[in-house]
Computed example of a mutant assay.
Amino acid sequence: MNQKGILLVNLGSPKSTSVEDVKEYLDEFLMDEKVIDYRWIFRALLVQGIILKTRPKKSAEAYKTVWTDEGSPLIVISKHLQKRLQEIVDVPVGLGMRYAEPSIKTGIQELVDQGVTEITLFPLYPQYAMSTTETVIDKAEEVRLKFFPDIKINYVEPFYDREIYINALAESIREKLPADFDLLQFSYHGVPERHIYKTDPTNTCNMNTCCQKEDNPSHKFCYRHQCYKVTELVCKKLGLPKEKVMVTFQSRLGKDKWMEPYTDATLEGLGKKGIKKLAIVCPAFVSDCLETLEEISVEGKEIFLHGGGERFDYIPCLNEEQSWVNVVKTLSEEKLNDFYFH
């Protein structure tokens, strides 16, 4: 019989907070054509000719503020998730990162060394995006064809609207949401608007009303729709009125048009609009990382308080909560039980 296994895949992180290691990580990350989707020569000019001249030093300083004794928060949390999942499933569980180590190749090799021949790969992203889910699948297929041609891989699909995930996220928020909050802000990682158009198989996206249409075939590949759907389903589960909820998008890079409204610009003005007690959650991430621990809970808090806010509550990601471990188990086992050659 074929031996099955699970491979969890997250984004990745620098090996250390040194400028050199951060530069190496950013080079691999930003040179991915699914992240900065310019022609190679223009991508190289932008990344290696401009961004890597200045950004690594700034990013290294930011990483130092969130680094733990065990290492990068994202890597540490991912390893803890792997361990906790392994405790409740009866197949081997591996871990890989799209960028840096442990790489997807390393993760697959770890499973192969245990006799695994059929792998269910779980991209740890609730929503589909060209720069997350798609690049993980592309990389895994590239690695499989080159190094593991006899191994079969299938993939856990984006789970943004699965009830088991929504229940876990909603309950996690409920437990941490202050009773007297003025506004709950859902801050999702942003992407350039052109990514939304590129992944639309129908070529009908207008970046507005189509996200609300029922049974739109674009929804399966529309990151924007999926972010708003998560918010809608969670708020329905929590019984939150629309006027107490807002969706924004963070972490934009460069001068291209990214999805709006922007998180940082929004935070600047909330205090003047009478929002004094803000809670914020980042459901594009399942593991706390630089974008949540530094960009939101440190920089975002500073922006909000400086703009007239009085209290800022960051609600952590699902990380290694038992309800989330159970979600990963359920969705993984669905694919293990319905294996097909991708």
Rank of each mutant, 00 (worst) to 15 (best):
K58A: 02
R194V: 04
G308W: 13
I153C: 08
E260D: 11
S16E: 01
V22I: 05
P73W: 14
L331C: 02
E291W: 08
S332G: 08
K105S: 12
L124F: 12
N337C: 04
Q82L: 08
L52D: 03
I50R: 14
G190N: 10
L45T: 03
Q226Y: 05
T263P: 08
L336P: 03
P192V: 11
T266H: 06
E110C: 09
V281I: 08
V245H: 12
P192F: 09
V247A: 13
F186A: 04
K220W: 03
L26E: 05
P283L: 01
V286R: 06
Y38S: 02
I296G: 08
I315R: 08
L74V: 10
V76W: 12
L169I: 05
G300Y: 04
G269T: 06
V22P: 07
L145W: 03
K64W: 07
Q250E: 09
G5A: 10
E175V: 10
K277V: 01
L81K: 08
T68E: 13
K213S: 00
L331Y: 07
T231W: 05
S218A: 15
T263R: 11
V327H: 09
F29P: 01
F249E: 00
L305Y: 09
L111K: 13
S287W: 07
E141F: 04
E268W: 03
L293Q: 08
I166L: 10
N326S: 15
V66G: 02
I280Q: 10
S172H: 15
I164Y: 09
D90T: 11
L11T: 09
T199P: 01
A279R: 11
E302R: 15
F341K: 15
L267N: 05
T68G: 02
E175K: 15
T54G: 02
L8T: 01
V136K: 07
K276D: 01
E291P: 04
A168S: 13
E320N: 14
L11S: 04
A62Q: 15
D338K: 15
F148E: 01
S251V: 01
S251Q: 09
A62W: 06
G269I: 02
A279Y: 08
K57Y: 12
E101R: 15
C211E: 00
L184P: 06
P283K: 04
E232A: 06
D113P: 09
A140S: 14
Q109Y: 11
F186S: 06
R98V: 01
L293R: 09
G49F: 07
V9K: 10
V234L: 09
F186R: 08
I280C: 05
G239I: 04
E61L: 13
Q86S: 15
E320Y: 13
K64I: 01
G94A: 06
V89A: 04
K4I: 01
E157D: 06
Y314G: 03
Q114V: 04
N167Y: 03
K257A: 13
S287Y: 07
I119N: 11
D138L: 12
K244T: 00
I77V: 12
W40P: 09
L253G: 00
L267I: 03
G309A: 07
T199E: 12
E134G: 01
L169R: 07
L240A: 10
Q114E: 14
G308K: 15
E232F: 02
